[in-house]
Design a binder for these strands. Structure first.
Length: 876
RNA sequence: GGUUCUUUAACUCAGUUGGUAGAGUGAUACCAUGACAUGGUAUAAGUCGGCAGUUCGAGCCUGCCAAGAACCA
């Protein structure tokens, strides 16, 4: 241990390789300390297979690793299941862009070739994310790593689909869906709503008989070609007589009828609404109620069709202006107002999302009923608990989930159509041989794929082998897995995917296994920059976790994230915080260095009997810290657990323990044993430096010995009241003397003589305390006294009084200083008093200047009184 | 518009069932004493967003208000 400071770069990669090679991360990696019947499971939220590690990953995986390492050391059979997600739209988009750059398209390539291409890209890119993860020092069971489209998981997806299909819970139908002209059908949560400064167009709709017109207000004039009615509120006296009258649509020959429906808001707009059932969610409902015709006016790419007559061929968004201009020319526009409204955008490509009628597959909302009930019965518990409110408010409005996607990359829907008899059936087989109805061999599979979240929804149990078939048995999963690890003990993820993912896992897990998939669900917050802004590439305030690992270390980044992770609160990341924790690792290194200057190697605490008072005291304090850290970790209060360790090690162990040991060298070997134990306690947070120091102090090496990561996590022992009390007094006396020294400006300098008055302690105790107080208070000669000492600077604290006799110290410098201060203050007082005594100044100066001076005078006077008091006491 | 969260020392944040308000950074003064200046010692600093209520007692519980954020319409 020669270098001045700890060098993480030399150890982190080396240790990680050894850990992984020795299979410590696997479920039986801690076999030696496993206790019967204690199982812990946690599924890693699978990052996108083509993704790159960002600070949000760093947070979530750090927290997951802390709990995993804690449980592993605590004797649990531990599964932290790793894997990656195929991320349908995202991945397909990336490859499509690559093709575009090469001057080709996926259509030109064909489905099969395109998928080969995506698989190739996946293979090339997949290792990057998991490799980056390793730099964080995380410890998932890598040998079981899964991919949401690997063979076994494809099988489980088919199995679950077919089951749901046969139970009538998956249906196909023509419904209005959220349609992205780029990415196809989206589920409700894949649409982001944003405020948009739009226009409110007031358009004349003439009566067919030429007897006049009504005024219709709309934000979407380009859809009026699909109008199949005009509606008013049945109670609206203004329009009562118009109900049933015919309207001739502007510029068109088509006629529609005025209908009455209470959906209309009489207060809003003109009270007359155009009804476009095929292009508006509400109009869709109205259309169904009134049996209206559904006219679709643009195709799936958003291009206007024949119904738009002269505007055919235009994109629906570009067409708006053209159409309005034409209507204006023909005198149909009454006025155009500014209007703020919400517009939905695709969460992936940000295109404007259209309500669009399309034939899609849906998972009926009925699937979720039991999971909602059980969640509210407390079968799964949220951390922080308020998230159940959000969960419920979403689940309360749950609609059927549109699970089909017009993509090629993903799980192709296992539904087949018979080309001969039109029979439709679902099958787990890759290519069913014949139609079960007519035995025809001409079958076509549905071309769509499943929403990515469908396979993710199975993650808590599909990775345990559920529905996997033979593939991967005894390598990727074992037959005991479902029994040992379902329900998962814990889920740690971001609140932003509560609905996308968590809610879906709850419904699927309950549906297929009769139990919710998690006992505990911890939702962490967002990592922001130091100003509290969201990190984004466009703002340029992104902190790259790998840069931080490089510049500081994985340990430091991890600890910084953990100590900042207060439940329900966003994290502000800053270099200041990272530096503070770098200082902490430096402290650890130097504490260790001190211990080794005195003793070569240290035993484990369990193998020795503590004999020194200081050793017993520090052990008692370690016990307290252990109790707290465990309690906080059990409640997922990562910040409190980390802070407890920080304070214990820095303030108690280094600040007091090490300093006190300088007066009792026999205690150092015991302190070393305690420090090693503290390294175990800290290990889940800072896996590398703790491993390093543990071996340094033990005189062993990771290469030739067992890792700290599979040693038993410290357990609370006992509180030692007597030693705690003794050192409370010792430390109190030391602080008291130090305070007294500050009074005479001697701060941390060594002085000759001081008296200490402590009531109610024996002579033995006094002689035991004496060396500690002498050393740390830096006094050559300490004398215990029963009475108050005259002619001394004194300090009174909770348990003692201390005195520094004024004749034992050279008071000249402090007296000189105080005298100078007194003179300076007097000058200032004179000056201000003279000013304030000047009538013209008082009359003319602004009020705030006067106030400022009056306050200044009062301050100076108060200060002078104190200075003079001190001078008097010193000059006695 | 609805729901949820946040508001505590100059800054960043803790504060477990209601019982004398805590940490780190920063500030001030001092200390190169054999682990560490990425250090040490000591000090100062808060009507806990506002108002009202419950209570012997409220940062914490209840209601209203204000400001900010997120999510959903």
């Amino acid at each position: 241990m020669a270098s001045e400071a700890y060098e993480p770069q030399n150890t982190e990669n080396k240790f990680y390789k050894i850990w992984e090679q020795r299979k410590y991360f696997e479920i039986d990696g801690n076999k030696a300390i496993q206790k019967e019947g204690k199982n812990f499971s946690l599924m890693m939220p699978p990052p996108n297979v083509t993704g790159r590690l960002h600070i949000g990953h760093a947070l979530t995986f750090t927290l997951q690793d802390i709990i995993t390492r804690y449980k592993r050391m605590d004797g649990y059979k531990t599964l932290w299941q790793p894997g990656t997600d195929h991320a349908g739209i995202a991945t397909q988009n990336v490859v499509e862009k690559q093709l575009l750059a090469e001057g080709t398209t996926k259509e030109a390539l064909g489905r099969e070739k395109f998928l080969e291409r995506v698989w190739a890209w996946k293979e090339e890119s997949a290792g990057i994310m998991t490799e980056q993860l390793r730099h964080m020092g995380v410890s998932p069971a890598w040998e079981r790593e899964r991919f949401t489209m690997d063979t076994g998981l494809q099988t489980s997806v088919k199995k679950s689909f077919v089951k749901l299909y046969e139970d009538g819970l998956i249906i196909r139908g023509n419904y209005m869906v959220n349609w992205c002209t780029h990415d196809g059908a989206l589920s409700d949560i894949e649409v982001e709503h944003e405020d948009h400064d739009g226009k409110f167009y007031h358009i004349k709709y003439p009566f067919a008989d030429g007897s006049g017109h009504v005024e219709v207000a709309t934000t979407r004039p380009e859809t009026y070609f699909g109008d199949t009615a005009v509606m008013v509120h049945p109670d609206d006296t203004r329009y009562k007589d118009l109900i049933g009258k015919k309207i001739k649509l502007p510029l068109l020959k088509r006629e529609v009828t005025i209908i009455a429906d209470s959906y209309v808001d009489m207060e809003f707009g003109t009270g007359v609404v155009k009804v476009t059932p095929a292009h508006d969610q509400n109009d869709y409902e109205v259309g169904k109620r009134h049996n209206l015709e559904f006219i679709t006016v643009f195709d799936e790419k958003g291009i206007l069709n024949d119904y738009a007559e002269e505007f055919k061929g235009l994109d629906r968004l570009e067409a708006r202006e053209v159409i309005v201009k034409r209507l204006e020319e023909e005198g149909f526009i009454v006025k155009i107002e500014n209007h703020k409204h919400q517009v939905g955008h695709c969460y992936r490509c940000k295109s404007v999302v259209e309500p669009y009628i399309s034939r899609q597959w849906f998972l009926k909302k009925d699937v979720a009923a039991k999971s909602i009930q059980k969640t509210n019965d407390g079968e799964a518990q949220f951390f922080p608990p308020h998230w159940i409110n959000s969960y419920n408010s979403w689940m309360g409005e749950l609609r059927d989930w549109c699970i089909s996607r017009q993509l090629w990359w993903g799980h192709q829907i296992p539904v087949f159509y018979c080309d001969d008899c039109d029979h439709e059936f679902a099958s787990e087989e890759e290519a069913p041989a014949e139609c079960p109805k007519c035995k025809s061999k001409n079958l076509t599979q549905d071309p769509d794929v499943l929403d990515t979240w469908f396979s993710s929804a199975l993650w808590p149990f599909s990775t345990l082998g559920w529905g996997n078939g033979e593939e991967g048995q005894d390598s990727l999963f074992t037959q005991n897995d479902m029994k040992d690890f379902y329900p998962n003990t814990l889920l740690i993820t971001g609140f932003d995917i509560l609905f996308f993912w968590v809610a879906r896992m709850m419904m699927m897990g309950e549906n297929f296994n009769g139990q919710l998939p998690f006992n505990h669900i911890y939702l962490h917050a967002l990592v922001r920059d130091e100003k509290g802004d969201k990190m984004s590439k466009s703002k340029g305030n992104v902190i790259d976790p790998l840069d931080m690992v490089e510049k500081y270390s994985a340990d430091i980044l991890r600890f910084t994230l953990a100590v900042s992770a207060a439940q329900g609160r966003d994290i502000r990341m800053s270099t200041e915080k990272l530096e503070q924790n770098r200082n902490f690792t430096n402290k650890l290194y130097n504490a260790s260095k001190y211990l080794q200057m005195n003793v070569d190697t240290f035993p484990d605490i369990g193998t020795i009997c503590l004999t020194t008072t200081l050793g017993k005291y520090m052990a008692s304090r370690l016990n307290f810290a252990t109790k707290e850290v465990r309690a906080y970790l059990d409640e997922y209060k990562f910040n409190d657990a980390a802070l407890t360790l920080y304070k214990f090690i820095w303030n108690e162990f280094c600040g007091w323990g090490i300093e006190l040991s300088k007066a009792d060298k026999d205690s150092i070997i015991e302190l070393g044993a305690i420090f090693k134990e503290a390294m175990k306690l800290l290990h889940p947070f800072m896996p590398f430096i703790t491993e390093y120091l543990y071996h340094e102090l033990s005189g062993t090496s990771l290469e030739d010995g067992d890792s700290i990561m599979i040693s038993a996590y410290p357990y609370k022992t006992k509180k030692r009241e007597k030693e705690e009390r003794t050192f409370e007094i010792i430390m109190d006396a030391i602080v008291s003397i130090r305070r007294a020294k500050v009074l005479v400006d001697l701060a941390n300098q060594k002085i000759e003589k001081a008296f200490v008055k402590i009531d109610g302690i024996s002579e033995d105790e006094k002689s035991m305390m004496l060396p500690f107080i002498t050393r740390l208070a830096k006094v050559t000669d300490i004398e215990f006294t029963e009475s108050t000492i005259e002619n001394a600077v004194s300090d009174i604290s909770d348990t003692c009084e201390t005195f520094i006799p004024t004749d034992s110290i050279d008071l000249t410098p402090i007296i000189t200083k105080l005298t100078r201060q007194d003179e300076k203050l007097q000058k200032e007082i004179d000056k201000i008093e003279k000013m304030l005594g000047n009538e013209r100044f008082v009359a003319n100066a602004p009020e705030d200047v006067l106030t400022k001076n009056r306050e200044g005078l009062a301050d100076a006077k108060a200060k002078q009184v104190k200075v003079q008091e001190q001078l008097r006491s010193l000059q006695k």
